[in-house]
Design a protein around this nucleic acid. Structure first.
Length: 351
DNA sequence: TATATTTGACCATG
DNA sequence: CATGGTCAAATATA
């Protein structure tokens, strides 16, 4: 199975896991269940087609698929399908091209922040964001196989080797919360970055003290697409051997332990904030997903096979994580925030 | 009480 | 001096 299929499969598993965790809450919303099932089925059907090498070229949106696949292929080629290890060869001095334009004016920043704050809703803590101990922020300690491992492209920043990825905000729920990546992090700082709408958050491995784990990451929402986070990883985890920390990839790729991480995207894609047309009613379609996966005609794959895959992924792949399920339902009522159509035109899309 | 987050202050670097 | 990165006291929450 090629890397493209893996990527799609990971996404499908992610959707399935979300559905499973949400099931108790969705009992009263059969429409949501149906929609989710259709979405998952189409993703797996696409995988099935791809694996069996059938009729991708007959696909109604094969151009989109091919484009997506090319992107994936290009990125995966640079990092083997295995855990990243510190490179010995020379690395590029700069991250993957496609960075955002800087230089936003103060007023633009203020405007964006105002809107971002509005999307967060009232703050019960009196101005401070809620603490990490809320269930919605709890992180699984299980080591998760993530696309970061596959997709992250290392580059050098001085003496440090960094990996930078773009990660989609949680498919459901509060888009302010950075996506899971399988590790546990402790936030130690936040900084306003010149020219950026959104502050940058600084995290270090929770086990830094206990295991001297040097891993850190920086998380910042993209100005050009607030639906995505740019996550920069710095330092390798050395806490793998801990009994309290996740260690190795738990299972083959089809595992519920995979997080809600999604493949890297070119930073200007899509060139503007998500529109209602780009987001389904549940806001679950990543921009890179061919349209047919969410609303188009079904593929030729059989429902039985798809369901087999789906059931297998849902029930045979380990225990569930707390993950973002609480996030999902705590803010199902807030989904309009995700679809916020009035994102100010930053002008960067047309720059 | 323990743990995590927030946020102003401090420091290093160019 | 401006900026990014980190520290640590204050604060919030389970």
């Amino acid at each position: 199975m090629d890397n493209q299929s893996v990527s799609l499969l990971l996404y499908g598993c992610s959707l399935a896991r979300d559905l499973e965790s949400n099931l108790p809450h969705l009992m009263s919303q059969p429409d949501s269940i149906v929609n989710s099932c259709h979405r998952i089925a189409r993703v797996f059907s696409a995988v099935q087609e791809q694996i069996s090498n059938v009729s991708v070229h007959h696909h109604q949106h094969d151009a989109q698929v091919a484009s997506f696949m090319q992107l994936q292929h290009h990125q995966v080629q640079q990092v083997p399908l295995q855990r990243y290890s510190p490179p010995s060869a020379a690395l590029p001095e700069t991250p993957v091209p496609g960075g955002e334009a800087a230089g936003a004016s103060a007023s633009r920043i203020a405007g964006a922040r105002q809107l971002a704050a509005a999307s967060e809703g009232p703050d019960p803590a009196g101005g401070r964001a809620s603490s990490s101990s809320s269930p919605s922020r709890q992180r699984s300690r299980r080591r998760q196989f993530t696309l970061i491992d596959v997709m992250a492209i290392p580059y050098r920043n001085g003496d440090q080797v960094r990996k930078r990825v773009n990660m989609e905000a949680p498919l459901y729920g509060n888009p302010e919360i950075p996506p899971e990546d399988g590790f546990t992090w402790k936030k130690y700082g936040q900084k306003e970055i010149l020219g950026s709408f959104f502050p940058r958050s600084y995290y270090r491995c929770t086990h830094q003290k206990l295991y001297q784990c040097p891993a850190k990451k920086q998380v910042q929402r993209l100005d050009s697409n607030p639906h995505f986070f740019q996550v920069t990883y710095c330092g390798e985890h050395t806490c793998h051997m801990s009994s309290t920390t996740p260690s190795v990839v738990p299972l083959p790729i089809v595992s519920r332990d995979m997080t809600d991480v999604h493949p890297m995207l070119p930073q200007q894609f899509p060139p503007q904030a998500p529109s209602t047309s780009q987001l389904s009613a549940a806001g679950t379609v990543p921009p890179w997903m061919p349209m047919d996966f969410d609303g188009g005609p079904s593929t030729a794959a059989t429902r039985d096979d798809t369901c087999t895959l789906l059931v297998d992924a849902m029930f045979n792949s380990g225990s569930s994580d707390t993950n973002s399920m609480d996030i999902i339902f705590s803010s199902m009522d807030d989904q309009d925030h995700q679809h916020q159509p009035s994102w100010p035109d930053t002008g960067e899309a047309s720059d």
